[in-house]
């Protein structure tokens, strides 16, 4: 299996996911500068967290039009798996890879904490190693993670099983108290229709090694590596 991490000016979680992927894959992913549209054929592309282009205009808006992203959109359309984390999720929505938008947190504060998340389905290559309904604890760190889409889109995402993760309490109950940013229907992550693109606000790479305090995020990376190897 081969993977690539797209590095934008302002990405700051690119090396974290590189380490997590290398541990799981047994080899290093390609690190691809955002201006490079001509990168090797890979099984998985990661759009990492950070503050691409300083969040100018809207989070992810500039990065969505970089040469590497045009190539990512083309390859995603042909089935390449894309894992879009935090700023990567914002970039993916701006690029039209995923529905909806990430808006300013409802309380206007940057939120940096561990959150409980419910795995809505494990019937995808991203989540196969979790149990359906499992509650995991993974950190978030963002000011613009408030997932919004129109009601028809939200209904469709729920109806078609495209909601990947929801913010919940430690028992798995979905409540507004467990929602760190005001996201519609507590949505923390969504798939595209083909389920080869996952965007999520939490950072699995930040909890992918026992030395970091836990491995709840590692299972997501291991799921992908097993499916794509």
């Amino acid at each position: 299996m081969d993977a690539a991490v797209i590095v934008f000016p302002g990405s700051n979680c690119d090396r974290d996911i590189k380490v997590a992927l290398a541990q799981s894959m047994g080899k290093e992913p390609h690190m691809v500068w955002h201006r490079d549209a001509d990168f090797p054929k890979v099984d998985l592309i990661v759009l990492p967290g950070g503050f691409s282009y300083g969040d100018y205009l809207r989070c992810g808006a500039m990065a969505a039009h970089s040469p590497a992203m045009r190539e990512v959109v083309a390859r995603a359309g042909k089935g390449t798996r894309v894992l879009a984390i935090c700023n990567g999720f914002q970039i993916a929505t701006e690029a039209g890879l995923l529905p909806g938008a990430l808006m300013r947190n409802a309380h206007l504060q940057y939120v940096c904490s561990d959150v409980n998340l419910r795995i809505e389905t494990n019937q995808t290559e991203f989540m196969a190693k979790y149990r359906p309904g499992q509650v995991v604890r993974i950190p978030v760190g963002h000011a613009d993670g408030n997932y919004q889409a129109d009601e028809a889109t939200l209904d469709r995402l729920e109806g078609e099983g495209l909601v990947a993760l929801r913010y919940c309490d430690p028992n798995g109950t979905i409540s507004s108290a467990a929602n760190p940013n005001g996201a519609a229907r507590n949505i923390a992550g969504v798939y595209n229709d083909e389920r080869n693109v996952l965007g999520l606000m939490p950072h699995p790479e930040r909890l992918s090694d026992a030395a970091l305090g836990g491995t709840d995020g590692r299972l997501m990376i291991d799921s992908l590596v097993e499916a794509l190897s």
């Binding site: 809207r58 808006a61 929505t93 701006e94 909806g100 938008a101 919004q148 889409a149």
Partner: peptide, 9 residues
């Protein structure tokens, strides 16, 4: 349409 506004919101 392409950049200055996000038609989703």
């Amino acid at each position: 349409r392409k950049l200055l506004a996000n038609p989703v919101m």
